[in-house]
Amino acid sequence: MQGKWINRLLLMPATAWFLVMLVLPLVVVAIFSFGERGAAGGYVPAFTLDQYLNLPARFTAFKNTLLLAPAGTLAALLIAYPLAYFLAVRASPKWKTILLVMVIVPFWTSILIRTYAWIFILGGRGIPTLLEFIGIEGVRLINTPFAVLVGIVYGYLPLMVFPIYVSLEKLDKRLLEASADLGSPPLRTFRQVTLPLSIPGIATGCMLVFILLMGEFLIPALLGGGKVFFIGNALVDLFLQSRNWAYGSAVAATLVIIMLVTVTLYMKLVARVGEQREDVSIL
């Protein structure tokens, strides 16, 4: 009885906070998305589907986001996995901590500053100038989808490395030895032991990166130069420039729905892969 009261007390502040700062604002967005734009911007109460019917007006933003967010996630995964593997399995214990800290450190610095560094590197006086020295001219990198992709991988790599590292670190190294002792070539050990056991880490990493990318604004704003823009850029425009709250809410609601659907499907898929693994191990 006493425990129940303590529990309620412990939960109360967090519950109140979530209600006021999360549930209420999201309900407001949902309501506003069926409203109309006021004459001077803002919102006028109404019940209409006009805002949703008008979504194709921002088609390019949706297209860019839905192409580049998965592409960026995949690129980050491909680059992060070998590093996570190296850190968890190969690196000597003496170096491991410092190397791990070195992966986290960039993440501790503002993503804004780090992305801004790439304006230098990819901009006119950066890599294109270097390429001119060796005779390749007229390469333009900044304000292209490639620049945005580089920014994405650079910005979110630590977030991908970490969960994969954690799942590989937990992996019982004796399994690898056993597999090798039983005559499995390294690649087979990797495919049948290491990779399946690191799926939770891969799933977490991909989900984290993908979620953050769906709402990305900074990287396209700085490296896409208004040419490669995401839904996030459209939202900033709609809320802070044209102050079209009703239409903006409809765009935001659509973004959330797309995300919920993709992530739920993704989780189901991961869970199914996990089940199969269970079956195999039982057999």
């Binding site: 999201l26 996030g232 935001a252 995300m259």
Partner: peptide, 9 residues
């Protein structure tokens, strides 16, 4: 929920 949606909401 993306940060940008939290900000807007």
């Amino acid at each position: 929920i993306p940060g940008i949606v939290i900000g807007i909401a």
